[in-house]
Design a binder for these strands. Structure first.
Lengths: 143, 143
DNA sequence: TATTGTTATACTCTATAACTATA
DNA sequence: TATAGTTATAGAGTATAACAATA
């Protein structure tokens, strides 16, 4: 197999797997009456503790206006709260409510468990290697 | 690092990377005035040649009604056509129009190129290993 | 009866651009 | 001037359920 052809296979496998992984948020969220985007939002907040709108936009790859709307709806559903940063009054911090934290934890655990189930067919060596490579790729992508 | 902790890292890296990969469709599509979902649709069709609604729904992880709406809009924009299967008149085949095929090829090439750019920092050995593992995971996920 | 797909309804999500407030 | 975020508008995407047609 040529290198180019193999890269094409790599790309196809990565795209198919990415679809599957993000769909896990839809599945896990549905169990708690959260949309996929709401599930991604609360999981992104819980792993960061407290997070600004800009960082959240980068993490979720959303325009600031789309994120503002998403946070609006999440706030109405008592999942998150907004607070102003007193040191830079332009900035907003997003935090989970107790209810949001409860759903976020359940959803995050569910997604993580599903991913663990997905990779359990791999050898420990393959998993360790995969973790290193994926981390490197993700950091390169976000860098 | 414990195995459990390492699996958590694996899950986090996979989620972050999946976000990035699917966002490539949004970027690549925008260059041709396609939404992310339209870009995913025409790319899914071009790699399959001609495809039924059910298979498309599985590939894109969409409910049949959502897919029906997406294909409606794509048909209005002259990206795809629907034809009835004469052997099973319940079934519908989706094909690309010449215009749809042109945009699909450009978008697919663009996404593939971006993914190749992403993995070019890896050694040939790491890439080959990654291709094997990702293919295995994708097939397990879709199986 | 089961399957394939569409339609109806009511939301949620998103992009673009114009806007406010703060730095 | 630049940055952080919101609002307005209009359209795209989605889930649920009810529906029609075919197998």
């Amino acid at each position: 197999m040529s290198e180019t052809h193999e890269d094409t296979n790599l790309a196809a496998a990565l795209v198919g797997l990415s679809h599957h992984v993000l769909h896990l948020f839809a599945d896990a969220g549905r169990a708690h009456d959260l949309t996929q985007q709401q599930a991604e939002l609360v999981c992104a907040v819980i792993v960061r503790g407290r997070v600004g709108m800009s960082e959240l936009g980068r993490a979720l790859h959303m325009e600031k206006s789309a994120l503002s709307n998403l946070v609006d709806r999440a706030e109405k559903r008592d999942l998150v709260t907004r607070t102003r940063d007193p040191h830079d009054r332009r900035a907003t911090w997003v935090e989970l409510t107790p209810e949001g934290a409860r759903l976020a934890e359940a959803t995050h655990d569910d997604v993580t468990a599903r991913i663990k189930g997905l990779v359990e067919g791999l050898s420990g060596q393959d998993r360790a290697h995969l973790t290193g490579v994926l981390t490197q790729l993700r950091d390169a992508a976000q860098g």
